[in-house]
């Protein structure tokens, strides 16, 4: 509860292109990450759900824990909520 206070999303692995929201996030909100970066939420992100840290092309790998957890079903924009509507494991 010091210099890290105020972070709204947790980056688990440096290679990840998604982070985990620590609280419900509204569209347009500034989301400070645990690594110091800030992304702007494009959509609502429910608590414990994933926010895209950069644009991911359709078919592109979504990486969390430094590993591929699935592939984008369509283009995912930076700051967008990442879940079953735009992510699955089908290659």
């Amino acid at each position: 509860m010091n210099d890290t206070a105020g972070i709204k999303a947790l980056l688990i692995h440096p290679r990840d292109n998604v982070a985990v929201a620590l609280e419900d996030v509204s569209p347009g909100a500034q989301v400070p990450l645990s690594d110091g970066r800030v992304v702007t939420a494009k959509t609502e992100i429910p608590q414990a759900h994933k926010i895209a840290l950069k644009r991911i092309d359709s078919g592109g790998a979504v990486v969390k824990y430094g590993e591929i957890i699935g592939f984008a079903k369509l283009v995912i924009e930076e700051g967008e909520w990442v879940h079953t509507h735009n992510l699955s494991y089908e290659e």
């Binding site: 994933k50 824990y65 879940h83």
Partner: peptide, 18 residues
């Protein structure tokens, strides 16, 4: 699990094996 933010089984299992 999905309501809690897990999308794929790989993601859920990675959360365990971490």
């Amino acid at each position: 699990n999905m309501d809690g933010g897990m999308t794929t089984i790989q993601e859920k299992s990675l959360g365990c094996i971490t």
